[in-house]
Amino acid sequence: MADLRRSFRGLEPPKNEQSARDIDVPPFLAELLGKHLASWPYDWVFCTQTGKWWWRSEWFRVIRPAADGREARPRARGTAVKEAWEPITPGLTMRDLRHTHDTYQAEDDVNPVLAHEQSGHKYPGIKGTYQHPTPAMRKHRLKALQRRYERALKNLGWKAIWES
Rank of each mutant, 00 (worst) to 15 (best):
M94A: 12
L92F: 02
K35F: 07
E58F: 09
R151D: 13
R73P: 01
N155Y: 08
P74F: 03
N111V: 06
E150P: 04
H116Y: 10
H36E: 09
N155C: 07
N16W: 03
A144L: 07
L97Y: 08
D24H: 02
A30S: 14
W55K: 13
P41C: 13
S57H: 14
L33C: 07
M94L: 15
K139V: 10
Y130R: 07
A80Y: 03
L97R: 13
P65H: 02
R141E: 11
L97T: 13
E150I: 03
R147E: 07
H36N: 14
H132F: 15
K127H: 12
W53M: 10
Y104A: 03
P27M: 05
Q146K: 05
Y42Q: 04
L97G: 10
V110N: 02
A152P: 00
K15C: 02
R98C: 14
F46K: 02
L4D: 10
M1I: 10
F8W: 15
G157P: 01
L29T: 01
R5N: 14
L11Q: 15
S164N: 12
I23Y: 13
P124N: 08
L37E: 04
W162F: 12
P124W: 04
Q105V: 03
I161T: 12
Y130Q: 08
H121S: 03
A20T: 06
I23A: 15
K159F: 09
V25K: 02
A136M: 05
G125F: 07
E58P: 02
G91K: 00
D102N: 11
D3C: 09
T100K: 13
K15H: 12
L32T: 09
D22L: 15
Y42C: 07
R138Y: 04
L92P: 00
L4F: 15
W85Y: 09
I88R: 04
D22Y: 11
P26N: 08
A144R: 04
R56P: 01
Q146A: 09
S39V: 04
R21Y: 05
H36P: 09
G10V: 00
I23D: 14
S57E: 15
W85I: 03
P90R: 04
Q131Y: 08
T129N: 08
R6I: 14
V25C: 11
R138P: 01
P124R: 08
D68C: 00
N16K: 11
E107F: 03
T48D: 03
Q49C: 10
E12I: 05
P87A: 06
G91P: 01
A136L: 07
D109H: 10
G78F: 02
W162I: 12
P14A: 01
Q118N: 09
A84Y: 00
R141N: 09
S39M: 06
E58Q: 12
M1E: 14
R9W: 12
A115K: 00
Q131F: 07
F8Q: 12
G34Q: 10
I88E: 04
A30K: 14
Q118A: 10
P14F: 00
E83T: 05
A106D: 14
P13V: 06
